[in-house]
């Protein structure tokens, strides 16, 4: 596999052709914010936070699913990209019910951290205050769809790692929501193995353990390296969901 050299934000970097630009950036300590990406899962390019400018390309491309070519000139830190990132977080904040002060993942939330990082001071967009269903039928876990950012990490981890494919997306557009099996209460799902991977990968307080109160719920991602190992050793139960 040939090694490719190119620059990100003016810093010369090198990587293999099979590595995404996001992976290479991380190896070189270049921070690119992400939300839907999770090491070990397939990439969907849905959150649009890792968008970058590439010289000679008019379109913005996501770092997580773009692969490098020799002498590529990549920028991830332009004013325009920073502004777009802030707007994306702003749109997410307005889309769901994200009241940090009363949320179980307060201080342990990826959306909250991203909001700090991009400097979101206020939300100009109209709050939508969705009234989606909260499902507490599972003995151990709860899904609060109003806090969901639709990153689909739970869908992917359940399909690609656990192999159960409990979760999927119902409806479309602004009405999208994560549903268990054929849109039935989670507690009645026969495919769910109660492994809890979906709860651990959820970046926000949408999938949570029962019995946690404000700020208590920390997501233990220590198992994630195992996913990585499984991926590199091809110990997959099912084919990657986004692979075509």
């Amino acid at each position: 596999m040939p090694v490719i050299t190119f620059t990100i934000n003016g810093v010369p970097v090198s990587g293999q052709q099979s590595e995404s630009i996001l992976e290479i950036a991380r190896q070189h300590d270049i921070r690119i914010p992400t939300l839907c990406h999770l090491d070990g899962l397939s990439d969907v390019g849905a959150c649009r936070l890792c968008l970058m400018e590439i010289e000679g390309t008019s379109k913005l491309l996501p770092a997580c699913s773009t692969y490098p070519s020799e002498n590529m000139v990549v920028r991830t830190d332009t004013d325009k990209l920073k502004r777009y990132r802030r707007t994306i977080i702003e749109l997410l904040a307005a889309e769901g019910n994200h009241q940090c002060a009363v949320c179980v993942v307060n201080n342990n939330c990826e959306l909250q951290n991203l909001a700090y990082e991009v400097g979101l001071e206020h939300v100009r967009a109209q709050y939508l205050f969705p009234k989606k269903e909260l499902d507490a039928t599972h003995p151990d876990y709860i899904i609060d769809r109003n806090r969901c950012v639709l990153c689909t990490r739970c869908v992917r981890v359940c399909h690609e790692v656990e192999g159960a494919h409990v979760w999927d997306i119902a409806n479309r557009g602004i009405n999208c929501e994560i549903v268990a099996d054929m849109n039935q209460p989670w507690g009645t799902s026969e495919s769910c193995t109660s492994c809890g991977k979906c709860v651990l990968v959820c970046p926000v307080g949408a999938l949570i353990e029962k019995g946690a109160t404000v700020s208590e719920m920390e997501k233990h991602r220590a198992f994630l390296p195992y996913i990585m190992t499984a991926r590199t050793k091809q110990e997959w139960i099912a084919r990657a969901i986004e692979e075509d």
Partner: peptide, 9 residues
């Protein structure tokens, strides 16, 4: 379709 944030929201 609701996949990416800019188009959905």
């Amino acid at each position: 379709c609701g996949k990416c944030v800019p188009c959905r929201s």
